[in-house]
Amino acid sequence: MEKEILKKYLSGTASLEEQTAVIEWLQTDEGKAQLDSLMQEQWDHAPEDAEKGELDRMLKGIHEQIQVSTPHKKLPERKKYNWGKSIRIAASLGLVSLLTVLLYKQLNFKPVPSEEIKTYSKHAEIGEKLRLRLPDKTIVILNSNATLRFTSEYGKSVREVVLEGEAFFEITPDKERPFKVKVDEVVVTALGTAFNAENRAGEVSVALTEGKVSVEKEVEGKAVRVLLDPGQMATSVDQRLGPFAVAAFDVSGVTAWKAGKIHFKGKALGDILSELQKWYGVEIKQEKGVNTARKISGTFNNESLENVLKGLTFSLGFQYEINGKEVVLKK
Rank of each mutant, 00 (worst) to 15 (best):
L99D: 07
T100H: 09
V101P: 05
L102K: 12
Q106R: 15
L107F: 06
P113K: 14
S114E: 12
E116F: 10
I117H: 09
I117N: 02
K118L: 15
S121P: 01
S121H: 08
K122W: 12
A124S: 12
I126D: 09
I126N: 13
K129V: 08
K129S: 10
R131G: 02
P135A: 05
P135H: 06
D136H: 14
T138N: 12
I141H: 07
L142W: 09
N143P: 02
N143V: 00
N143K: 09
S144F: 13
S144D: 06
S144K: 11
N145W: 06
A146E: 04
L148F: 06
T151K: 09
T151A: 02
E153S: 08
Y154E: 13
Y154R: 12
K156P: 00
V158S: 12
R159E: 04
E160Q: 14
V161I: 12
E164K: 00
G165V: 03
E166R: 04
F168Q: 00
F169Y: 07
T172V: 12
P173N: 13
D174Q: 10
K175Y: 07
R177T: 10
R177P: 01
P178H: 05
P178Q: 07
F179E: 05
F179N: 06
F179H: 08
F179G: 03
K180M: 13
V181Y: 00
V181L: 02
K182L: 03
K182R: 11
V183P: 00
D184F: 00
E185H: 04
V186A: 03
V186D: 04
L191P: 05
T193P: 02
E198F: 09
E198D: 14
R200E: 06
R200H: 11
G202V: 02
V204T: 14
V204Y: 01
A207L: 03
T209G: 03
T209C: 04
T209P: 08
E210M: 08
G211H: 03
G211E: 09
K212E: 11
S214G: 04
E216Y: 01
V219C: 03
G221I: 08
G221Q: 06
A223L: 15
V224P: 02
V224M: 11
R225M: 12
L228K: 02
D229I: 13
G231D: 09
Q232L: 04
M233W: 07
T235M: 05
T235S: 12
S236R: 01
V237H: 10
D238L: 07
D238G: 02
